[in-house]
Design a protein around this nucleic acid. Structure first.
Lengths: 145, 145
DNA sequence: AGAAGTTGAAACAACGAATGTTACAACTTT
DNA sequence: AAAGTTGTAACATTCGTTGTTTCAACTTCT
């Protein structure tokens, strides 16, 4: 089981947009070239990021731009934008425990809070990092090359 | 994306084993009845829990037993036992970023530490809860019925 | 106005992972 | 010897992820 690569792709393309915007028109084709991901998938991801208010794109004109400052975009915002987890939550609970069994009809209640806490721990960690930090690290590594 | 239900199934059957052992022979058929999960899947999960030293089962005789005290089994132990995540980690990194691109060849380095931190946050939370607590809650809810 | 390049989106294909099913050999107990 | 159980392999099914093709709508440039 793994969280969809759309998440790391999204971080990648947002980093590209910040670094290359101004130097070139950052089209889905350019981003496809940098990520190695199909341009249609890139446009899908860009669409999700646009819906979340993170980037701006326009039909025809070409070139994506950030919609808000880097330090106001957390990894959690991106994770949510690309739908890493659905409403069911991170953990998949087996769906038909037997209600005739005292354990079967109560195990859900006994576990839910703890599963939610684990998911929150993950998400809070993502909330604690902004794109600004990722881009800064990336620039630092590039400069050191 | 969701973590395999084998995890919640494993917690469920371990709870059953603790609660029903002594009253009945807790076979894969009994556990299948309580969870609503195919008995073969149950035997697979039991096999993984056995390999992890969490339960004891034997061919022929029938009936599973806990291999160590409830308070020495954490949710993390179970999560690891049933292989919720592989060696690649929880996050799926896109595999072919373009090394010709300064962002493409460095984004992995810029993100890896943060992804690992997020995964650790989840896992540390699971390490903080033992089966003893889950079983105690389950018994409490049953008694209150 | 027309040409060229781009985005947005739908429809479909390919692949792999999760889960279910069938079948059967090996084992234990009675 | 009979009956029930576990361990395991092989196969089927379903679903989510990712890739691909196609095209209408839009913008920019000449």
């Amino acid at each position: 089981m793994q969280i969809t690569s759309k998440f790391t792709v999204a971080v990648h393309i947002l980093t590209c947009i910040d670094i290359f915007d101004g130097q070139m028109r950052v089209t889905s084709d350019v981003l496809s070239g940098s990520t190695g991901i199909n341009a249609v998938i890139i446009r899908n991801v860009l669409g999700q990021l646009r819906n979340a208010g993170i980037v701006e794109t326009r039909q025809g004109s070409g070139g994506a731009h950030l919609a808000k400052p880097l330090d106001e975009i957390t990894l959690y915002d991106i994770y949510k934008a690309v739908d890493c987890v659905d409403d069911e939550g991170l953990f998949h609970f087996h769906e038909n425990p037997n209600v005739e069994c005292p354990v079967g009809r109560n195990i859900h209640k006994a576990m839910d809070g703890r599963l939610a806490a684990a998911q929150s721990a993950l998400e809070n960690e993502l909330k604690g990092t902004t794109l600004a930090e990722v881009v800064a690290d990336t620039r630092r590594i590039i400069d050191a090359e």
